[in-house]
């Protein structure tokens, strides 16, 4: 269903920029692709520029880069211990990618993370890696993860399917959480922006009320953009910890 130009959903429309069909796969370069490329370039530029003249005593830029580095390093260390160190590039990339997509989206260009398929692919990547880590580290013993400890035997037929379902639902909740937050925020901003025009048409000067609300909602959306990237990263760490230490 195509939304018309003034619908709050028009901002999620994907516009093809360059048709590409290599090997019969639809790989059209779209505005979403453009933003993803820009995000990767920005993150790399950010770190390279910050680390360009790296000194023992960091400058402002280097301090920012190190802040992100140590933030994710501490997150990983606190949640998974030293065994999770080799997943640091993954968690860092995920966090920076989602954070940059969320924040760029707030500037009204395009929000990659407001597409369920993108967030779902990222969540599926996380869950696949977590499951693979679990099976590689513990082999078939990883299946004991689905058997809750301390539950009475006669409850097992109920508990084990529940555990499996809750495990399988993780990629869905992980992706829908990010997706819904982004969509809701952008729809709310657009709807309230529409109120400015609508209320002004009703009575001149009335549009000031929703106009005053927009900066507040924008600030909330900045918070949400940061929080959702953080939540995605911390949940990745928690899932990794479950798979590595099998403490359930």
């Amino acid at each position: 269903m195509a939304a018309d130009a003034h619908s709050p959903l028009a901002q999620f429309e994907i516009k093809p920029l360059l048709e590409l069909h290599p090997f019969g796969i639809d790989a059209t370069f779209t505005n979403a692709s453009l933003i993803m490329v820009v995000v990767v370039a920005l993150i790399t530029l950010f770190i390279v520029a910050g680390m360009n003249k790296a000194t023992i005593v960091p400058g402002r830029f280097q301090g920012m880069v190190e802040f992100f580095y140590e933030f994710i390093a501490n997150l990983l260390q606190e949640n998974t211990g030293s065994a999770g160190r080799k997943f640091f590039p993954l968690v860092f990339s995920l966090f920076m990618f989602i954070l940059a997509c969320n924040l760029i989206g707030l500037f009204g260009v395009f929000t990659v993370t407001s597409h369920i398929i993108v967030t779902f692919a990222l969540a599926l990547l996380v869950i696949t890696i977590v499951t693979a880590v679990g099976f590689i580290r513990h082999g078939a013993h990883f299946c004991s993860y689905f058997v809750p400890q301390g539950a009475p035997m006669w409850l097992m037929p109920l508990m084990i399917p529940l555990e499996i379902i809750s495990y399988l639902i993780r990629p869905i909740s992980l992706s829908v959480r990010l997706f819904a937050n982004m969509v809701a925020g952008h729809v709310m901003l657009t709807v309230i922006g529409g109120f400015v025009v609508g209320l002004n048409g009703l009575l001149i000067g009335f549009g000031v009320i929703p106009l005053a609300a927009i900066p507040l909602i924008f600030a909330l959306e900045v918070l949400v953009a940061l929080l959702q990237a953080y939540v995605f990263a911390i949940l990745t760490c928690i899932y990794l910890n479950d798979a590595i230490h099998l403490a359930h």
Binding site: I14, I25, T30, I117, V118, A121
Partner: peptide, 12 residues
């Protein structure tokens, strides 16, 4: 979906 996934995979 397919174009988004392809470009997501490439960029990520």
């Amino acid at each position: 979906f397919s174009e988004l996934l392809v470009w997501l995979a490439l960029t990520f």
